[in-house]
């Protein structure tokens, strides 16, 4: 474990908690893409199946349980409890265009052709594009609530910090996982235009609104 991975995990945890609290406190999931949240629930489920089979550390296991729990709680709040506030018309990204190619790629390019490893690879590839429905929804509505932009910033920052963690592990632990690195770079690149808007608008106290 290194400081970059730890702050990355904490940034990821913060994002998940921010979103959950935003929906719970405002009793509304306006502006939130339920499709992205379903994809994240799938990402955690397929990646953490080893919860039952391999124990790495208390930290590792507890974080996995928290991530999975919060992901399903968020999906529940969006599609069940506060479904009246779910903006289905703007959450119209065709996720099958993500899941199918990612599934195919996971079967073709992986470290080991075993069930758990293909699911882990699927999860890594899916996570890199899971935010697209959310970014697409913001481009369609032309704006995002400030709390949602903080959620997205923490979520984008987490994988950017993981990239630094991989650089660190390459030099100090000779650890190198090309699949995770390539997917992580793609994932972080997808946030670049959001990061630009976040820094130039939200951090200056303006509302994030796209030229519609």
């Amino acid at each position: 474990m290194n400081i970059f991975r730890l702050t990355g995990d904490l940034s990821h945890l913060a994002a998940i908690i921010i979103l959950l609290l935003k929906i719970w406190k405002t009793r509304s999931c306006a502006g939130i893409s339920g499709k992205s949240q379903i994809l994240f629930a799938i990402v955690f489920t397929t990646r953490y199946l080893d919860l039952l089979s391999s124990f790495i550390s208390l930290y590792n296991t507890s974080m996995k349980v928290i991530y999975i729990g919060c992901a399903y709680a968020t999906v529940y709040l969006i599609y069940m409890k506060f479904r009246a506030t779910y903006d289905g018309n703007h959450d119209s990204f065709r996720v099958e265009f993500l899941v199918v190619p990612v599934g195919g790629l996971a079967v073709l390019i992986n470290h080991d052709f075993s069930f758990l490893e293909i699911l882990w690879t699927f999860s890594i590839y899916l996570e890199s594009v899971a935010i697209l429905p959310q970014l697409f929804m913001i481009s369609k509505t032309g704006e995002a609530e400030t709390i949602t932009t903080h959620y997205l910033f923490c979520l984008g920052l987490y994988r950017a910090l993981y990239i630094v963690n991989w650089i660190w592990r390459y030099y100090f632990e000779a650890f190198f996982d090309l699949i995770a690195i390539v997917a992580g770079v793609v994932q972080t690149i997808l946030y670049c235009d959001f990061f630009y808007l976040y820094v130039t608008k939200v951090l200056k106290g303006k509302k994030l609104s796209l030229p519609a």
């Binding site: 995990d9 391999s54 590792n60 470290h111």
Partner: peptide, 10 residues
Amino acid sequence: EYNIFGHDEL
């Protein structure tokens, strides 16, 4: 790289 104990990152 992939080790027999699976992946140690979240």
